[in-house]
Design a protein around this nucleic acid. Structure first.
Lengths: 172, 172
DNA sequence: GCATGTAGTGAGCTACACTCACTATCAGGC
DNA sequence: GCCTGATAGTGAGTGTAGCTCACTACATGC
């Protein structure tokens, strides 16, 4: 009985922690979305800007791969960024099929703003935080990421262990 | 000069921590999206299910408020949930303008599945984690949330103090 | 020099958010 | 009782972000 109580107490603590995490996810997302909107960007378009800032002029195909998105989607994102003057499509020097998505001056400027904004955000979250708490948070984030990745990579761990195999139940 | 070095070292640590957090946000979002898709739901529709599970049959107007979304958007979400058999629109007993969005049997069942799934997710993230690390993570999440909320609520803090006005450090 | 593959886009779909305009209904005031 | 104003929901239209499929233009290999 008391053993059972302990187990469910732990489960409650885990659920509470998850709720906090989910709330944090929502709030972080909101904050970033609003901040990006101030610069005339959406999340996806900012993602393109980010990749472009790291790699310099990039083929749409390569952008698609970097963003884990279909080439067609990149066409749309680049259309948007070009329409608002952040990037241009330049001809590829050796491959006439390809275009190199390239920052305009405004684009470069905005990319810098994004970097600065992210540093400010890091400051907002962590400035003045005691070292031990920061260490523990970083370690915790790392552990959570490891667990999630282990789970994602491992859809079917082994053979015949009888666990939850493949719930091929579909209803539609 | 050495002081400056320390400052930028701290800033680097903060940026690294932010990168970890952002990665965590992405991975958590992905995991939940995929998990919901297995139940035939999207994030927004699952949000509706969640509110319905908490409140029972609910007016679309109330759903709109609970989800912080326009009434028109709720119409679309409920259309989707009704088309896939999770909910029905029942007449409101006293107000003929309103409809009560109500679970079908399948909806109730799926809502239970969602709750179970969330508990499993909490387990995946936190099961077997040492107490001190869990404590520290929970406290850290709380602090980050507090900081973000203080920032959101405070677009213009006061008059002319210029600096960082009220660090409102709390960890409940 | 011809077959095959690759880069990008048009067309068309789902989903989620918004606004504006409209219908149906409710609730008051007189 | 009836008219007026607020409220519940939806149709129409827009923007963003994904997807697939089919197609053009070009590159490359044999």
């Amino acid at each position: 009985m008391s053993g059972n109580g302990d187990v469910s107490e732990m489960a409650d603590r885990h659920n509470a922690a998850l709720n906090l995490l989910l709330e944090l996810v929502v709030v972080v997302n909101d904050d970033m979305t609003r901040s990006l909107a101030r610069d005339g960007l959406t999340g996806s378009r900012a993602h393109v800007m980010w990749v472009l800032a790291q790699r310099g002029p990039t083929t749409q195909r390569d952008l698609a791969e970097a963003l884990a998105v279909s080439p067609r989607t990149v066409t749309g994102l680049v259309d948007g960024l070009a329409a608002t003057g952040f990037v241009t499509r330049e001809p590829h020097p050796t491959d006439r099929r390809a275009t190199l998505v390239t920052f305009t001056a405004h684009g470069t400027e905005t990319a810098d703003t994004l970097v600065r904004g992210q540093h400010e955000f890091a400051d907002l979250l962590f400035a003045g935080m005691p070292d031990d708490r920061l260490d523990c948070l970083v370690a915790g984030f790392g552990e959570l990421l490891d667990r999630l990745r282990a789970h994602d990579v491992d859809p079917v761990p082994a053979a015949g262990t009888g666990g939850i195999p493949a719930t091929t139940e579909e209803d539609r």
